[in-house]
């Protein structure tokens, strides 16, 4: 169980401080695939960095804490301070662009065995790796190739292999398939789901594509303007979203075979520089009232296992069903 307790991430700039993640409190059960969705600037990537422990100036964990629920080799609990020591061991990361993460002048196999904290017996590790990547659908020759000789899909599989080789408890994937073709994306996502089923670890998946979230995730976290606005079981979130933003987001996406009119959400998220009061979605929300602008809604469990931060949670769905 991973706990985020009122996590606030701030960026310090010449103009002052800004909170890219502003007080997120959720509990992530073990063994789930959590999808994090929201528009650019909502804070999802920052949240990932926080959880991964990749916190460098000007970003800082301004307040709050993260409890990871698993201990290190000596059994000590891991918190945001020492999570860095566990990279690729108990927690790992699949980046969006594999070409930016693989050393272009080093063969793939060598990069694999050069992990920090790796077994000094490189030959044995290499043999294990060879066997492992076969399971991921990669030919053995992959290890002897340079990154640019592999296709995008193969490279991403290599990244997944690296990220899962040590069977970490937690895997963070930041838009892992955005740069891939839709056909390759499906293969990669299915692979990820297979691995998760076998290893039983927790995956946090950031994606802008709600379709990907629908297919892959078991829980969903929707973020808006640095706040968590909805959190719950995927099935529930997609079937009956509680927060108007979630609902409008999901219904704005066209699907093939569905001829209903779709509409985008007009307007922009509020700038995080200004003083924000009340619900941050109020300006764009069709349900907004004076109460929304004055009082910020808290993330409340309106249905079992399904939280939303809205004074009128579930009303849009109710109205739609009544209509």
């Amino acid at each position: 169980m991973i706990r985020l307790n009122s996590v606030v991430a701030s960026y310090r700039t010449a103009r002052g401080s800004i909170n890219a993640v502003d007080g997120v409190t959720i509990e992530i059960p073990d063994g789930c695939i959590l999808g994090v969705a929201g528009e650019s600037g909502c804070g999802k990537s920052t949240l990932m960095k926080l959880i991964y422990g990749d916190v460098t100036s000007p970003m800082a964990l301004a307040s709050g804490s993260i409890e990871y629920g698993f201990g290190d080799a000596k059994g000590r609990p891991i918190t945001s301070d020492n999570i860095r020591d566990q990279w690729f061991n108990r927690i790992s990361y699949i980046p969006q662009s594999s070409m930016n993460s693989l050393n272009p002048v080093v063969k793939v196999g060598k990069q694999f065995v050069d992990f920090p904290g790796s077994d000094p017996d490189k030959k044995r590790v290499l043999a294990e790796v060879r066997e492992y990547i076969g399971k991921l659908g990669l030919p053995v020759e992959t290890l002897d190739a340079y990154p640019h000789q592999l296709s995008g899909g193969m490279r991403q599989r290599v990244m997944i292999a690296m990220a899962t080789f040590f069977q970490p408890e937690l895997i963070l994937a930041d838009e892992p398939t955005t740069a891939l073709d839709v056909v390759v994306q499906k293969d990669i996502l299915l692979l990820l789901m297979d691995l998760q089923e076998q290893m039983g670890n927790t995956i946090l998946l950031v994606s802008h594509d709600m379709g990907v979230h629908y297919q892959v995730t078991t829980r969903m976290l929707i973020m808006y303007a640095a706040k968590a606005v909805e959190y719950g079981d995927s099935e529930s979130v997609f079937a009956a979203p509680l927060h108007p933003y979630t609902r409008m987001l999901i219904s704005s996406l066209p699907t093939i075979g569905d001829d209903r009119a779709r509409d985008g959400i007009p307007g922009r998220p509020p700038s995080l520089w200004q003083e924000l009061s009340g619900c941050r979605f109020a300006d764009r929300c069709p349900l907004a009232t004076a109460r929304c602008r004055a009082e910020e809604p808290a993330l409340i469990e309106h249905k079992p296992g399904h939280w939303a931060a809205c004074h009128y949670a579930g009303e849009m769905t109710q109205r739609a069903e009544a209509a």
């Binding site: 700039t13 103009r15 890219a20 920052t46 950031v206």
Partner: peptide, 14 residues
Amino acid sequence: SDIRDTAVSPADLA
């Protein structure tokens, strides 16, 4: 890559 890095970088903040 179609999607730019969605983490709020200082340049984006400006």
